[in-house]
Write a protein that binds this DNA or RNA. Sequence first.
DNA 1: AATGGTAATGAAAACCATTATCATTAATAA
DNA 2: TTATTAATGATAATGGTTTTCATTACCATT
Lengths: 148, 148
Amino acid sequence: MHSPHKWRHRFRANVSRWTVPREIILDFLSRTSKHMSAKEIYASLYRMYPGIGLTTVYRTLDLLVRIGLINKLTFGDGPSRYEFKSEKKNEHHHHLLCTKCGRIIDYNDFMGEELKLTKKTEETLAKKYNFKVQDHNIEFYGLCEKCQ
Amino acid sequence: MHSPHKWRHRFRANVSRWTVPREIILDFLSRTSKHMSAKEIYASLYRMYPGIGLTTVYRTLDLLVRIGLINKLTFGDGPSRYEFKSEKKNEHHHHLLCTKCGRIIDYNDFMGEELKLTKKTEETLAKKYNFKVQDHNIEFYGLCEKCQ
DNA sequence: AATGGTAATGAAAACCATTATCATTAATAA
DNA sequence: TTATTAATGATAATGGTTTTCATTACCATT
Ligand SMILES: [Mn+2]
Ligand SMILES: [Mn+2]
Ligand SMILES: [Zn+2]
Ligand SMILES: [Zn+2]
């Protein structure tokens, strides 16, 4: 697995080596739309690649977050979950979380309005609290179709 | 500690008993504006009430969240934090989180605009995904005054 | 006020996600 | 090819939270 790959340069730029486990994990995440925990990723990969340890999954996920290729999602219950971050600018999205069954729904409606609100908020909060906003997170809690 | 208290009926309504540890913990939270972890609450109470166990703090916090008297905040790093939920309608607020030092800043600017956005979002998402929104959370990540 | 049924408590152990350790392996530059 | 050193993976350790279980204390009913 030494073929040139579209993400290889991102690792170089971050003084990190392009390794087999990293490619496998990143490739796996890029092909799923699920929000998976480290253990779930480990288990999914185990059948095909039993050599990859859970520790390496954790370390790789941490690196991918630092590099900016994936998002780490921490909802109140259970383990952290991860999702591939699409490079397409219009695929920025947030989540609906079912408080009963735990279902996670992506949505990207209202991104225009949201951008307007967040931009305005960021500017004013920067002045008022001298706080430099880098990112934001919005989530809605409630009951999904099946659970209400 | 058997005096009638303004929160006592909330416990009754939830088939829960009004106990000394519960009153102490709730009273403590209602008097601080900090966002504290279970262990921090336990430690704060220990001097005056060394009889209250950490387990009871966890259980009481869980109950208070269920009853709706406090909020549980789970930022990615470290333990969950808790804050008293003000009964005043205009004190709904969100958080600015410093990614460097962990500082948490409350803000309640733009609540008008926010309400407009969230209401609109809730309505449309209810139709589109048949999802019944109960609550929402917004947070901004960045660098606080001291850390930039 | 006394009683009894049962929820709540607290100490300890268990649980579980995540991180640290360390000997071994493998990616990269020379 | 070789040397350097980052990355890996098995294992142990960590730390927040939950479970267990014997004891205590609410509180509805006498
Ligand atoms: Mn998503
Ligand atoms: Mn707050
Ligand atoms: Zn559901
Ligand atoms: Zn800071």
